[in-house]
Design a protein around this nucleic acid. Sequence first.
DNA 1: CTCGATCCCTGGACGC
DNA 2: TGCGTCCAGGGATCGA
Length: 297
Amino acid sequence: MPELPEVETVARGLQREVAGRKILGLTLGKTDFIDDPGAMEKKLPGRTILRVERYGKFLLLRLTPGEQPKTNEGEAALLVHLGMTGLLMPRAASEPQAKHTHVVMLLDDGRELRYVDPRRFGRIAYLAGEVLRTELEGFGADPLETALVEFARRIQARKARIKALLLDQSVLRGVGNIYADESLWRAKIHPAEWGARLTRRKVQQLYVVLQGILQKAILLGGSSISDFLDAEGLPGEYQRHHRVYGREGKPCFRCRTTIRRVIVAGRSSYYCPHCQKTPRGRKGLGRTKSGRRSTKR
DNA sequence: CTCGATCCCTGGACGC
DNA sequence: TGCGTCCAGGGATCGA
């Protein structure tokens, strides 16, 4: 599940591999996760990928503006969200297409930039000018580029649970379930604690450990839980450093207490009941994501 | 403003 | 071996 470190890893790989390449042609498969497939087919061919950046959990492929002056829309970019199972990597055109390949961009070096995504939880959008600007403005602060005061303001101003705040892309961009749980464990904060109730000291601890975890994870190429691969098709290594995520029933690395899993903000949240004290007044924790009737079609 | 519930989707795990 | 069921999860959306 690509979060900030995984997307950063892919962005760096793609920057190395495809920056400067011109897109000659485009082939689409299933398009239900693409904002406007028609626009993509029309706009992309002929554009050059200037550079590849990460923006939250999005890959941002900065493109040259349209050729004709009349179609000049200002800055243009292809936004790619990998969802849970998305992969974006250049392949030799001769290489057989993997199953669930939905976008193929033919490049001017003969290779193809391919987007593969079995579950299609991702999103792809060609955006330009004002639309692009507005889209990007809707996201919160980058946890690695934000000062402590700004981070604290965003957390303490809100009454929602800290886990929900960490996952909220309009508060912070790039943090997902894995790194939220890992940082809360390190900072010894219960996922259901309220943002507004965290002390300044706690917020600072969270800020420091979150940045440390993200940086370490980037260094190790991200976490490969199930099927994440970078732009060169290599898995990350940070999953070996996970302290709580996915460790339900196993002993806490600090105190040996059994790690538990609860649903907070609609997501599985792993935590140590001893190190991360349940906030006072909380109830309804301890249930798991079950008991829900499966739906008919 | 914040919450939970629901849906989107498919592969993998698991039970029988 | 094969089928059915459950589950993962980011984000959008809807109603409470």
